[in-house]
Structure formats: structure tokens, C-alpha cells
Amino acid sequence: MRVTSSLLPAAGLMVLLACGGGGGGTSAPPPPPASAGAFEGPWNGTLVSNTGGSVSATALLLASGEMRYVASNGIQAVGTLSATGSSAAGSGTMYAPTGYVFPGNVASLSYTIHGSGTGGSVLSGTYTSAYDSGTFAFAYNAGAKYASPVVLANVAGTYASTATSSGFPINGRLTSTGALSGSDAFGTLTGTLTAVDPAKNAFRVNVTYTPTGQAGRTYAGLAFFDFSYSPVRLQVQTTGGAGQFAAELQLVGP
């Protein structure tokens, strides 16, 4: 198994503790739930390590603050982002590409990010990690049409991968009901897409990948259709007990 160092954030999560005042025995109210604020939606960007290396990344951020991004080196990051005005901070876990591990022989690591920007436009800042740190700069992907509902019948058809977390090409099919199926040289996959919000281009996705002669491996995460490409591409970003499964799939036929 090859070992690769990360160009993405990998810092320990911060734990915040609140203590009540004396006398009343009461505790401070819990913090409000995370919210993406104006930064909700799909983003494309670049992360630049302080060592000089860089990777591109495709991200999706939900209104709840849930975020995922997949980088061009195959690393996937999952976490939560909270936004206050033009400022944002997040933390979570990132996963090594299939068949790789991070330094220390671990398949996943924690990260934190801090940034600022303008919703629907730009978001930039810094990331920190146990092994690496650097900067990031993302631009909002307006071409993905996040604020428009997706009619699955209009994007159903045969898909072929332009990128995968495993590095192996995938051929698949998506039906008008959101059922996903396909295969690569080493196994088969099945899955389902369910809209997070019927008015938006964001989906919950569950995938089972079954290597030939082995038990199936289940993954769950997010997906969206990127209409900035013609034909459209489906961005699938999922993780599970076996690691991660990510793919960019392009519609190639009916």
C-alpha cells in the first residue's frame, strides 16, 4: 500500500466546553446549530500547501452547514461549517484515496479551516493540520444551478466516469427514479439519490460497491449535478466504514 502525504487540512477537532455560573446550578445554553449562511451551494477551488504543492477541489455545502469536498489527488473531506456574516469556520474528517494511507498509516484524519468571503461569489482562508497547512480559495459554481430543482427524468441515462477515488473507470446508469447502478474492472455498484430539498440541486446518495467475490461495502454522502458542463456531470461524494467512494460521472447517452 502506498503512503501519501496530504495537501488538505488534517488538524484535531476543537472541543468547546461551557460551564454554568455559581449559585444557580444552571449551564450555558447550547450553541446554535451550524449554518452555512450565504455560503450554501457548490464551489470549485484550489488548496495550496505551505510546502508549495496544490490541488483543485469540488465542494458542496448545505444550508445545515454540512460540507464535503473531493480534491484532484483523490482525498475527500467531510465536515461542518458555521458562517457568521462574511466569516466561516469548519472542522471535520478527511479520507485518503482508495488504496492509500496518510502518514502514520491511518486512513482518515481531522481538519479545521477558517475563512471569509462573499456568499455566491468567493470564499478563501487558511487550513491547519497535524501534517500540513496552507491556504484555500474557492469560487461559487453558479453554472451548477444549485437553486433550481432537478428533474431526474431529464438527467437519467448512461454515465461514464471522468474521475474516481479508486482511479479506475466506472460505467453506470441513472434512472428517472434516482436508482444508480454500474461497474468497474473489479466490481459492481448500486445506489440511490434522494433530494435534500426538492427546490435545490442537492441529493443524499447511498452507494454499495461490491468487489468481485467479496462482501458489499456501503457508503453515504452527497451528490449534485454540475450543469456547467455539457453534457451534465454528476458529482458523487460518499464515505463509510470501508473508507470513501467518490466519482465524477458524465452523461454520455440515453
Rank of each mutant, 00 (worst) to 15 (best):
R2K: 14
V3E: 15
S6N: 15
P9K: 05
A11I: 05
A11W: 11
V15R: 15
G20A: 01
G21S: 15
G24L: 09
T26C: 12
S27N: 13
P29M: 11
P30G: 14
P31V: 13
A34E: 04
S35D: 13
S35W: 09
A36H: 06
A38T: 14
P42M: 07
W43F: 03
W43L: 02
N44T: 10
L47Y: 15
S49I: 05
S49L: 09
G53I: 11
S54C: 00
T58W: 15
T58I: 10
L61D: 06
A63E: 11
G65Q: 04
M67R: 03
M67G: 06
R68A: 12
Y69E: 01
V70R: 06
L81F: 12
L81T: 12
S82Q: 08
T84M: 08
T84C: 05
M94Y: 00
Y95L: 13
Y100Q: 15
V101Q: 10
G104C: 09
V106L: 07
V106A: 14
A107M: 12
A107K: 11
S108C: 03
L109G: 02
I113D: 01
I113K: 00
H114L: 08
L123Q: 04
S124W: 07
S129F: 08
Y131K: 11
A137N: 11
F138D: 08
N141Q: 09
G143V: 14
K145G: 03
K145H: 08
Y146K: 03
S148G: 02
S148D: 07
P149I: 03
V150G: 02
V150E: 03
V150M: 00
V155T: 08
A160V: 10
S165I: 01
S166N: 00
F168W: 09
F168D: 12
P169I: 06
G172A: 07
T177V: 08
T177Y: 07
T177P: 03
A179H: 13
A179Y: 05
S181D: 09
D184V: 04
F186P: 00
T188G: 01
T188E: 02
L189M: 12
T190Q: 05
G191P: 04
V196C: 13
A199T: 15
K200D: 08
A202E: 10
A202D: 08
V205I: 15
P211T: 03
T212A: 09
T212N: 12
A215L: 11
T218R: 10
Y219R: 07
Y219E: 02
G221Y: 03
F225M: 04
D226I: 06
F227Y: 15
Y229T: 07
S230I: 05
V236P: 02
Q237N: 07
Q237K: 07
T238C: 03
T238E: 01
G241D: 10
G243Y: 06
F245A: 13
F245Q: 04
A247C: 14
A247K: 13
L249W: 04
Q250V: 09
V252Q: 14
P254W: 00
